[in-house]
């Protein structure tokens, strides 16, 4: 994908659309999968949300006006689809706010495609204690490697706020990880 405008032209052109969309899938499928997986947690749910994301992208390509990059737009759709899915689930399951952190870990543990060792479980446990939005910010920066400006467009949060939240979270995690490593060393 050398030139985004040119690529978009192909995506919007009926003649080239199918082929260009396969290229788009190849480029974004795995990235968006991991982005969504960290939000909706289980593989099965991620699979559903990923499919909905690409369907929505396909249906809305003609409306994409390049006010943001295609990259940001794709992530924004994936993020919105994930939040829509989570909101729907919360309503159906009547979660109380206190249940949400436990719900994150329980859902993770129930997923057959989660196979965390001791330190991975501890890290997930630390992440589960963060407020949802703060966790998303950390994950989007650290794991998805998005820029703060891109995250700002996706989450509609100011760059300064994102930076502050991210650095606080990193400090918090590092502190807790050190404690975990110490604990594991002592056990060994």
């Amino acid at each position: 994908m050398t030139n985004e405008s040119e690529f978009l032209e192909r995506l919007k052109n009926n003649k080239h659309r199918e082929k260009a969309f396969v290229e788009l899938l190849n480029l974004y499928q795995e990235r968006l999968y991991w982005h969504i997986r960290k939000l909706v947690i289980t593989h099965e749910n991620t699979n559903d949300v990923l499919q909905n994301t690409f369907l929505r992208v396909y249906k809305n390509l003609s409306k994409f006006q390049q006010k943001s990059t295609l990259h940001t737009w794709m992530y924004r759709i994936a993020y919105n689809e994930s939040i829509r899915f989570l909101d729907k689930n919360k309503k159906n399951q009547n979660y109380s706010l206190d249940d949400l952190n436990n719900s994150y870990l329980n859902t993770l543990e129930q997923d057959v495609y989660f196979d965390g060792d001791k330190i991975q479980r501890k890290l997930q446990s630390i992440l589960s204690k963060l407020p949802e939005k703060q966790r998303y910010i950390f994950q989007m920066k650290y794991y998805d490697d998005l820029k703060f400006t891109e995250m700002s467009e996706i989450l509609e949060i100011k760059v300064g706020t994102l930076k502050s939240s991210y650095y606080n979270t990193v400090r918090y995690i590092e502190k807790n990880i050190e404690n975990i490593e110490l604990l594991i060393k002592n056990e060994v």
Binding site: Y33, W34, R37, K38, H43, Y113, F114, D115, G116, D117, Q120, R121, L123, Q124, Y143
Partner: peptide, 11 residues
């Protein structure tokens, strides 16, 4: 990274 850090697997 996702497998190593977070223990997330895929089919």
């Amino acid at each position: 990274t996702h497998q190593k850090d977070l223990g997330l697997e895929i089919p």
